[in-house]
Structures are given as structure tokens and as C-alpha cells.
Design a binder for these strands. Structure first.
Length: 487
RNA sequence: GGUCGGAUGGCCGAGAGGUUAGGCAGAGGUCUGCAAAACCUUUUACAGCGGUUCAAAUCCGCUUCCGACCUCCA
């Protein structure tokens, strides 16, 4: 029935999507480490998976979507050195680590809600799954793929690589990885191999986040929380695992390793990775100073921004690029998206008012097929939108009598746009005002204006129009009467 | 330096051997008391040089430039 193909990073190919236990689908996406505000690039990744979630549900799958929040164990360096990011922030602000995470989690959810992302089915915290992580670490030790040194448990990458393709996901050569990192082996006397990573870390006396374990007081490593939580909620093997592309070489590679060291198989069948958001061709990142927060984008309160852009415009802007391509941000580009979004929404509002005829000159089933073909091709939202814009042209043509539509086709057209635009793409109209008083007053004012216009009293009608313009209301005289909108 | 991925018209961005992607901007038009808005039509393209092919933006090779990862990042 569906012909959905998903690009799998594991095989570097698009593959037909076949869930393990239809109609159920298990999907795990690596969420943020909330020691600070999530930035716009982070949001793009979660938006991409929101589309996956929505489309799979639309196709009739029962999706369990797990997206974690990492609140412990993520150190400042992937080499398992430096301070825990959350703990550091807590120390600096003299707050409980959980206070830090709670503060940024609330903010994170508020932003995602504005962008109309559906909440995941489960949003587990790493700190809430310490026993699971300890248990998994024990299992890896029992299976001989890890070793303990002074209360820290290290994953033995080189040993593991002999029995499992460790570099499968990143598509790199193990020798080269070992070579490339040799020089920073110094100062790390505990781990045996340069690629080895911590499953459990001994807590230094001043470390605020600490739990008892078979190896003494400590805290879990960065990657193990995702393995433990995905296994707990989705099982030893599930359908989709996703995250940003930058997680491929370290985080996801190690996740697969840990999981395979326990269960002798890759946790997920389809690995999906989203590309980066760039600004002037460079990856958005805090260190480059080219990142801004979603809240700043909405308000326009940032040096890089000419003005604010509404959340739905931002969503539309991101959907105009495929999730595996980089997307370059600029004021010009997002302003173009804003106009396009408004055009799409205006056409959508027109559908219920379209006249019907005995025959159709528009091939609605073909349009429908084209849109689904795009979505089935690895969630190709830009092409799906392009097809919907083809439909927009027809909607206007029908509106103006240049094309015709049967009642049945009109119903199908309405259904297609409702389902695709609202349910799958998650766009929604941004009402300027639903204040009934304003609506009533405007109706009255425009009635008066049209009366004086019919008497050719243009001085008065222009006075009304100009005065409204000063108040930020644009009057639009059309064939079918006069409408208005806020500017 | 190593590995991987890119270079598409003024901008953003799809496509991936033969047929117009789409959006925005520009130009022309329709409508209009005027204006705006809206709608219609429409110009400009596949980094460079070779090769394969009846046919290449699309495949292969080289060159140039850019990015990502290898060091915190979705």
C-alpha cells in the first residue's frame, strides 16, 4: 500500500521501509543535552523527525517515538575529559543540576510547541535511568568488551572491532581513526586504547552528580544513556534511530558498539541523520558566533536578523529543504519563504469556497499521487511542497473560472490539503486576530467605505484606507469585495 | 593532514542520462477611481577541463573552490 523509502546511513542507500512489527514502529531520536538553550540548528533536527513521526502516523503506523533529554554524563570533550556540561553549569549558577535541566527543558518544549512539533511518546531523562545504565555496563563487562580501572569502566573498542564492524556507520577505517588520535593519548593513563570510551566514570570528590555503582561512586558515560533507554522502551531491536549528522562518528557509532556488545546486533534497522543548518555557508554553532536562538528569530532581536519571523514561517522555511541537505539561513531566504507560506495558506482558505461543476479539468488524483510520491521518497518535503504549489495554481484557476472541479473532486482536494499541510507537514494558519470586536469593527468600517466609494466619494474612502494603514491594517480591494490584513 | 559530502539561474532550493521542479525577486499583463493586494504569463542554470554515450546538470577522471567530521555542538 505504501511505498515509503528511507535513506539508511548504515547502507548509504534508500531502502523500502519495512517495520519489524507492523503496524507498530519504534523510533528513537537523540535529544538535546540541556545545559543551555537549544538553538535553531537543534530545532531543525527535531523538526525533521517530527515530519517522520507525523508521516508514519498518517500512513497508519502506531509509532512509539522516544526522544531523550541528556542531563548527565555529557562531558565537555568526547575524549571523556573535562567537566560534565550540566554539572558545570549548575556549579557556576549555584543551582541543582536538575534545576538547570528543568529550566532549559521548559524553554525547549515551549519553542518546539511554537514550531508545532508533536511531543514524543516518551521523553526519558538519563538521570532517571541510572540502574539501567549500570546494568548494561555490567553486561558489557561480562561479555568481555569493557574493563574497569580505578572505578571507571572503559569500552574496549579495538577488541570489539575484531568481532563487529565498529566503523560501519561512519564508513571510516579503524586504522586511520587510531592513527589520527594517537597524539592525544598522553595524559590519559587509564584507558588502553585511544578510541575507548567511558561507560561509567568515577566521580571526583567535587563532582555533584554521583551515584553508587558496583565500581564505586560515579556517573554514567555520555553514550550509554541512549542505549539503555532505547532498549528499555523500544526493545533490543527497533525500527528507526535518528539524530543530527554530527552524531554519526562518535555518539551513534559508540551506541551501536555498546548495544552490540550486549545483544550482538545493531539496535536499529534504519539510521537516519539530518544535515546541518548553516549561516552564510557555515555550520551554525555557538563558537562561531553565528547561532541564534529560536526566540531571537521569532522576535528579530539579534544582529543577524533584519526582523522577526513567525514560527510557522520558520517551519515552512525548513521544510523547503530536504532534511539530508544543508540549509542556508539568510534574511532574504526566509522572507521568500514567508511570502510562499502566505500564498499557500491563502489558497487553502479558498478551497471551501470553490465553485463546483459537472466536470473536472483538474486531475486531483494525480496531484495526490505526486504529493505522496514525494513524501514516500525519503520524506522529500520540498518536492511535496512544490507539488502542492502546482495545486495552488489550479485552486486559483478554479476560483477564477478557468478550471472546473466536481463536488467529489473538491472534497478530495480539501482532504489532500488538510492532511498534507496540516497533519503531515504540521503547518497551521497564523491568525492575525480572532478578536470578534476587531472583526466586527473592521466589517463596519469597510462597509462604510464601500458605501462612500459607490458614491464616488474617494476623498473619504482614501481617508479611511490611509488611516487604517497607519494603524497597521492593509485594505485589499478585490473583485469579490474588500478584505483586510495586518501588516 | 586524513575521511566524507557538496558546487544548479539575482536568492533559497529539488532533480539525477533524453520531457517546465517549486518558492522569492525581476519583467510584462489582468483587475482597479487611484494605489496596494491578488491572480496570469515570462527571461536568466546546472563550477572548469577532458572522457563514456545517439544523448550528460545527471555517469567516469582530473582541476578549482566550499563545507562537515577527526576537538563541544542536532
Amino acid at each position: 500500500m505504501h511505498d515509503l523509502h528511507i535513506y539508511n546511513t548504515l547502507t548509504r542507500r534508500k531502502e523500502p521501509f519495512q517495520p519489524l512489527n507492523p503496524p507498530h514502529v519504534g523510533m528513537y531520536v537523540c535529544g538535546p543535552t540541556l545545559y543551555t538553550h537549544a538553538h535553531l540548528g537543534n530545532c531543525r533536527t527535531f523538526l525533521s523527525f517530527d515530519i517522520v513521526f507525523r508521516y508514519l502516523r498518517h500512513l497508519g503506523y502506531k509509532v512509539r517515538y522516544v526522544r531523550n533529554i541528556t542531563d548527565v554524563g555529557h562531558l565537555e570533550s568526547d575524549a571523556d575529559e573535562g567537566e560534565d556540561k550540566v554539572a558545570k553549569r549548575a556549579r557556576l549558577e549555584k543551582l541543582e543540576p536538575m534545576e538547570i535541566v528543568q529550566f532549559y527543558a521548559v524553554d525547549f518544549h515551549r519553542i518546539l510547541d511554537k514550531l508545532n512539533l508533536l511531543p514524543p511518546s516518551i521523553e526519558p531523562l538519563a538521570s532517571g535511568h541510572i540502574p539501567e545504565q549500570i546494568e548494561m555496563t555490567q553486561r558489557i563487562l561480562q561479555n568481555g568488551m569493557a574493563y574497569e580501572v580505578n572505578g571507571t569502566v572503559w569500552f574496549d573498542v579495538e577488541k570489539f572491532a575484531k568481532v563487529f564492524p565498529y566503523t560501519q556507520l561512519s564508513n571510516r577505517q579503524l586504522d586511520e581513526l587510531l592513527d589520527g588520535t594517537r597524539d592525544n593519548l598522553e595524559g590519559q593513563d587509564e584507558k588502553r586504547g585511544r578510541l575507548d570510551f567511558a561507560l561509567w566514570k568515577r566521580a571526583t570528590p567535587g563532582h555533584i552528580m554521583r551515584w553508587n555503582s558496583p565500581w564505586g561512586v560515579g556517573f554514567p558515560g555520555w553514550h550509554i544513556e541512549c542505549s539503555a533507554m532505547s532498549t528499555k522502551y523500544l526493545g533490543e531491536e527497533f525500527d528507526i534511530h535518528g539524530g543530527g549528522m554530527d552524531l554519526i562518528p562518535t555518539h551513534h557509532t559508540n551506541e551501536i558498539a555498546q548495544h552490540a556488545a550486549c545483544y550482538h546486533k545493531n539496535p536499529a534497522r534504519y539510521w537516519m541523520h539530518t544535515n546541518m543548518l548553516t549561516v552564510n555557508g557555515q555550520k551554525m554553532s555557538k563558537s562561531l558566533g553565528n547561532s541564534f536562538l529560536p526566540a531571537e528569530l521569532f522576535s528579530g532581536n539579534h544582529p543577524l536578523l533584519e526582523r522577526g519571523y513567525s514560527p510557522m514561517v520558520v517551519r515552512f522555511f525548513m521544510l523547503q529543504a530536504h532534511y539530508r541537505s544543508t540549509l542556508d539561513f539568510s534574511n532574504f531566504a526566509i522572507q521568500a519563504a514567508e511570502k510562499g507560506f502566505q500564498r499557500l495558506m491563502a489558497a487553502l482558505e479558498l478551497i471551501p469556497h470553490l465553485p463546483v461543476s459537472d466536470t473536472s479539468t483538474v486531475d486531483v488524483p494525480a496531484l495526490r499521487q505526486a504529493v505522496y510520491r514525494a513524501m514516500n521518497d525519503d520524506f522529500n518535503t520540498p518536492v511535496a511542497l512544490a507539488e502542492l504549489f502546482e495545486g495552488v495554481r489550479h485552486i486559483y484557476a478554479i476560483h477564477e473560472g478557468r478550471d472546473t472541479l466536481t463536488a467529489a473532486d473538491k472534497e478530495q482536494l480539501q482532504k489532500l490539503y488538510n492532511e498534507m499541510v496540516f497533519d503531515v507537514l504540521g503547518l497551521k494558519p497564523e491568525k492575525n486576530s480572532d478578536d470578534t470586536l476587531v472583526t466586527g469593527l473592521m466589517q463596519l468600517i469597510l462597509d462604510i467605505r464601500s458605501e462612500v466609494r459607490s458614491k464616488k466619494d474617494y476623498a473619504t474612502s482614501d481617508k479611511i484606507r490611509d488611516a487604517l494603514a497607519k494603524l497597521g491594517i492593509q485594505v485589499k480591494d478585490g473583485k469579490e469585495g474588500t478584505t483586510w490584513s495586518r501588516t
